[in-house]
Simulated assay, not measured.
Amino acid sequence: MTRPWEADPSASFHRRLGRSAQETDDSDGRDACPDIWQLSNGDVAVIGRDLTGTYAARLPSGVSVAADERLVVIPGNMLSAAKSDIPDA
């Protein structure tokens, strides 16, 4: 069975949405920095902490995480900083 949407692994990183983790003070500049990127095909890549296992038992009704998906968490201020880069629907 095919899904209505599938991630395209051939898409490349196009532009950062918002500011870097260093600019938002969410990184010490060494490694493991959260980030949000628009890909060349318009999809969005989010780099964050994998908390799939932590949230698995408490997902709201109607929410699921497939075996090939991960629930990642990023600092709220990073998403707020990206707001001006995200077009309205």
Rank of each mutant, 00 (worst) to 15 (best):
I74S: 07
F13H: 07
I47A: 13
P34N: 07
V73G: 05
G18E: 09
K83H: 08
S27D: 00
P4K: 07
R49M: 10
L71R: 01
D8S: 11
L79F: 15
S20C: 00
P87E: 07
T52C: 11
G42F: 13
A45Y: 04
D85P: 08
P9F: 02
S84T: 12
A81D: 13
M78F: 08
S20M: 00
R30N: 04
I36V: 15
N41S: 09
D68L: 12
L17T: 01
L79P: 01
A66Q: 12
D26H: 06
A56M: 11
G42W: 09
R19Y: 06
R15K: 13
D28Q: 08
T54R: 13
V44N: 03
E6C: 04
S10A: 14
I86F: 13
D85E: 09
A81H: 04
R49C: 04
E6Q: 14
V63Y: 13
I74A: 08
A21I: 02
I47L: 11
A32N: 10
P75N: 11
A57G: 09
G42T: 02
D31F: 10
R16I: 05
D35Y: 01
I86Y: 10
V65L: 08
G18F: 08
S27Q: 00
V44K: 06
S20D: 01
S20E: 00
G53E: 10
A11Q: 10
V63M: 15
I74T: 09
